[in-house]
Design a protein around this nucleic acid. Structure first.
Lengths: 142, 142
DNA sequence: AAAATAAATGAGAATAATTCTCATTTATTT
DNA sequence: AAATAAATGAGAATTATTCTCATTTATTTT
């Protein structure tokens, strides 16, 4: 069911190199988005830092991965969803934890309707959206 | 109706200095979120760069302003909404334009309901949320 | 399968963004 | 108005990211 790093690279038609495979695998291994710092440590000795940055940009530009910035200004990456699906994020503003979440079908439908309104009102062509929920996780709440 | 920079500083109980006033005014002058680069140019000669960064952090920590990062990794600031109100953003992924938007009351209500579900499911205490819509503005669409 | 070509890597230098230091200035308190 | 506390400015220091280029690895051609 789940695609290997190599398969993903073939699909996007970019050449299969060891750093790219390692990086994709490392990101896939993490359930949740991973920071550059963590990636760097995990790949220490196997991928040069310059290559890490370059490869992340390459993978981003063919949309294999997505980059975003957390509320505390940390850059993180995740493997992009394929087929129409997508998900959102829940952030703990104290410990920095990030959790992937899915919204109900019904709510996503509501959201789509709202988006159409906005498109008309602002004469925009909306391609995507992200919803981020910010708060405290169970560990940090008390 | 709208508060002055000085009033805002008094309200948050931090001292009133010329750089802080200038920075808040500059951010208020922009309808939409403003980048550090733009702020820097606009305040050239009036506020030192080190002061700009420091003051932005100060203002952020008392929640006078909010910081976020655009899809193309540019850090921008806006004055925080007061009273319960809040708004969201529409991004043009080609020209980088950012527009403030408000969602319908009805939709925000739906969202709140959805948020409660997520809180329960993940045992999180959710304090805030942001919805970002990404697409092409009328100028960039063709 | 080997040779030729094209693309990607690694190491470190270069640049950009942000924070830090500390003497001086400005704001607040007494 | 004097004393104290806080913030500023200038530039140095640090951190994050990109760039350069000789070498290695992958892909294409024969």
């Amino acid at each position: 069911m789940k695609k290997s790093a190599t398969e993903i690279l073939i699909e996007k038609n970019i050449s299969i190199t060891s750093p790219r495979v390692l990086i994709i695998e490392e990101i896939l291994n993490n359930k949740n988005p991973i920071s550059i710092e963590k990636l760097q440590k995990q790949l220490e000795g196997r991928v040069a830092l310059s290559t890490l940055y370059r490869a992340l940009n390459d993978l981003k530009s063919v949309e294999i991965i997505k980059e975003f910035t957390t509320t505390d200004s940390i850059t993180v990456f995740e493997v992009a969803d394929h087929d129409g699906s997508h998900h959102h994020h829940l952030f703990c503003t104290r410990c920095g934890d990030i959790i992937d979440i899915n919204l109900s079908k019904k709510f996503e439908k509501n959201l789509d309707t709202e988006v159409v309104k906005i498109e008309k009102a602002f004469n925009f062509e909306i391609k995507d959206h992200t919803l981020e929920l910010l708060g405290l996780c169970s560990k940090c709440v008390d």
